[in-house]
Each structure stands twice: as structure tokens, then as C-alpha cells.
Simulated scan of single mutants.
Amino acid sequence: MTTWEYATIPLITHMTKAILDQWGADGWELVQVVPGPGDGLVAYLKRPTNA
């Protein structure tokens, strides 16, 4: 059975692609983006653990 670890990260609007590309290169998969505080966005990511 696959187990997962999760991360929640703030996204800077003018750097969204660069931020997500970096996390993706580290093995993270984007699950969802939701409105954050103010005008910001928050991304939820997951990746399988090595368990």
C-alpha cells in the first residue's frame, strides 16, 4: 500500500510556475490550489513516502 506525505505551500502569484516546477522536480504532485490569505494562493502537494 502506498503511503503519502503532504506539503502546504504559499504561492507567489508572479512566480507560481517556477515554484511548482521546483517542487515537481523534487517529486511532489500538485493536488489542489485554493485561495489563501489576502490575494495569495496556497498549494497542497503530495508524494509517496519511502516506507
Score class of each variant (00 low, 15 high):
I9W: 03
H14W: 12
A18R: 10
K17L: 13
N50M: 02
L11D: 03
A18Q: 11
A43C: 08
V34D: 03
W23F: 14
I9H: 00
V33S: 10
M1R: 14
M1V: 10
Y44N: 03
L11A: 01
L45F: 02
P48C: 06
I9K: 00
Y44E: 02
P37V: 06
G38K: 07
A25W: 07
H14M: 14
Q32H: 12
P10S: 01
D26K: 14
A43S: 13
H14E: 08
A18F: 06
W23I: 04
G27E: 09
E29C: 03
L11Y: 09
L41I: 01
W28S: 08
A51Q: 06
A25R: 15
T49C: 12
H14P: 12
G40T: 15
T3P: 03
P35G: 03
E5N: 10
T16H: 00
T8G: 02
E29F: 02
Y44A: 00
A51K: 08
T3L: 13
G24P: 15
D21S: 09
T49D: 11
Q32I: 01
P35E: 07
I12Q: 09
W4M: 11
D26P: 00
D26Q: 11
G36A: 09
I12V: 05
G27R: 09
K46E: 13
I9S: 00
L45N: 03
T16P: 01
P10F: 01
G36Q: 12
L45M: 11
L20G: 05
N50Q: 15
T13V: 15
Y44G: 00
V34I: 14
V31N: 01
L45R: 00
L30A: 06
R47K: 12
L45W: 02
T16V: 13
T8Y: 01
W28N: 12
V42M: 09
A51C: 02
K46R: 15
R47H: 10
G24M: 13
G40C: 04
T49M: 15
D21M: 01
I12C: 00
L45Y: 07
I12S: 00
T13H: 07
E5L: 10
G36V: 01
G36F: 02
P48I: 04
A18G: 15
E5T: 15
T13C: 08
G27P: 08
P48D: 05
V34R: 05
V33Y: 01
T8F: 00
A51L: 10
I9Q: 06
G24L: 14
G40P: 14
N50H: 07
G36E: 00
L45A: 04
T13A: 15
W28C: 09
L41Y: 01
Y6T: 05
Q32L: 04
G36L: 03
T16F: 05
T8I: 02
E5A: 10
Y6H: 06
T13N: 15
P48S: 09
I19C: 10
M15I: 12
